[in-house]
Structure formats: C-alpha cells, structure tokens
Design a protein around this nucleic acid. Structure first.
Length: 232
DNA sequence: GCGACAG
DNA sequence: ATCTTGTCGC
C-alpha cells in the first residue's frame, strides 16, 4: 500500500510532542468506512534484548474467515528511546516500511497499543491512522491513562475508560473471567465499532487474532527463523 | 517533590 | 518490550 510522508521524522522529544499536538487535529472518531470490511491487518514489533535491532510485522487476514491473506516484515534498528507517550516514534518507521511493501491495502488496521486513550489523545493507533488514511483502532493489554470499573466477567462485557469524565476508550472482556483489553479509537472509526471488531477478532484468545499473528511473525523474523519481507 | 508510566 | 520455572486449568 502507498503511504506518503512529507514531514521530516522527529528526532527529539519536543519535536515528537509537537507533531502529536499538530496531527491530532486530523483524527476523526466516527465510522467512515464506505464499503464492507474484507481485510483486517494487525501490526506489531519485537525488540532484541541487547541491541537496537527490532522487527516489524504486518499480517493481513480475511475479516470473515481470519485466514491469512498476506504478510510483510522488516528488520531494522531504532535510535528513538522508549518513552511512555512517545513510543509510536520508535515503532512507526519500521511499521510504515512493512506496510508499504504490502500489495494489499487493508480495510482496517489493528494496533498493539492505544489510540485516543493517550496523555495527549494521540497514541500509536491515531498516528498510524493519520499516516495511512486507513481506519484504525488500538487494543492495549494495560491501561495507560484513565479509570474504569471492571466490566462483568463474561465475554462481551464492556465498561468505559474515562479521563475526567471524558470517554477515551473501553475495557472489553474478550474471554470469560480473563483480564479485559483496552480498546480506543485510532482514526476514522467509532469506539463502538472498534469494540465490536475487537470481540469478533478475539473469539478464542484474549487478544485479537490480528495482533497474535503479527506478534508471532515479528518474533520469528527477529529470531532469524523467518526471512524479512518474505511476503504471504 | 513523588510516583506512574502503551510497548 | 525482554528475561524466566513451575503451575493451575480446560
């Protein structure tokens, strides 16, 4: 898929924050999909324990059957240190490169992390959505900002994640009696639709199948068991 | 000032 | 994120 980037990529913390504050105005939290969702992509990054090496992976699945349609991966390094609130600047360059070599343009992108449920309302999912123009949402394993009342213990239960009364996401129970995941809007989708997709994609495990596949591929590639950009 | 802090 | 043994449960 094509992804255009004209601005220089931030190098410092202040430049990164500045970019987030500027780009967040482009985020739209409403459903904008004009055609049925056929393909859903999951993205994830794996890091090497003692080197700046990292592997980014994308897996495109058929929305209905969850069968793998195409994959893409890349191994590279990063200079941007991990900093809560700015970790998108660590992962995005590699993810964009992996997405670019995709021949398919996914109808939906599922990110490993938050979207609007971020200190400046512009997490990785929002950033990737604005960069690609594709509807995105984030599914995180832990809360970053906000408060919530634990949803009922049965699969499908949800409860709002709020910051000073503002709903920034939702705690979604994807499995009976298992810790909920935290869903938030990235771009061009509503929270309800994102939550519904999360449940659909997490029928047998706590995390969406998209995220699980991308996570596994990124680790395999980083370990050298699978060659990068091998395609689907 | 202190603690918390997506991956 | 990554490092790790055993353990509880379906």
């Amino acid at each position: 898929m094509e992804i255009r980037i004209q601005e220089p990529w931030p190098t410092t913390t202040s430049e990164a924050v500045e970019m987030q504050l500027r780009l967040r105005r482009q985020v739209r939290a409403t459903d904008e999909t004009t055609h049925p969702v056929r393909t859903v992509a999951g993205v994830d990054v794996a890091y090497d324990r003692d080197s700046p090496r990292l592997a980014a992976a994308v897996t495109v699945l058929d929305h209905d059957t969850l069968e793998e349609i195409e994959t893409s991966s890349v191994v590279t390094t990063t200079d941007f240190p991990y900093e809560p609130g700015l970790f998108a600047f660590r992962e995005l360059p590699a993810l964009v490169e992996a997405l670019r070599s995709l021949r398919t343009t996914p109808d939906l992108l599922v990110c490993d992390g938050h979207g609007l449920a971020h200190p400046r309302r512009f997490g990785l999912a929002c950033h990737l959505g604005v960069l690609t123009g594709v509807p995105t949402f984030g599914v995180a394993k832990t809360v970053f900002v906000g408060e919530f009342v634990p949803p009922a213990s049965s699969r499908g239960s949800t409860s709002p994640l709020t910051v000073d009364g503002e709903v920034v996401g939702a705690a979604v129970r994807t499995r009976d009696g298992v810790k909920p995941v935290f869903v938030s809007v990235g771009h061009r989708i509503s929270l309800d639709t994102a939550s519904a997709h999360t449940l659909t994609l997490s029928r047998n495990y706590r995390l969406p199948e998209t995220t699980r596949r991308a996570d596994r591929l990124s680790r395999e590639v980083l370990a050298g068991r699978v060659s990068p950009s091998a395609g689907g």
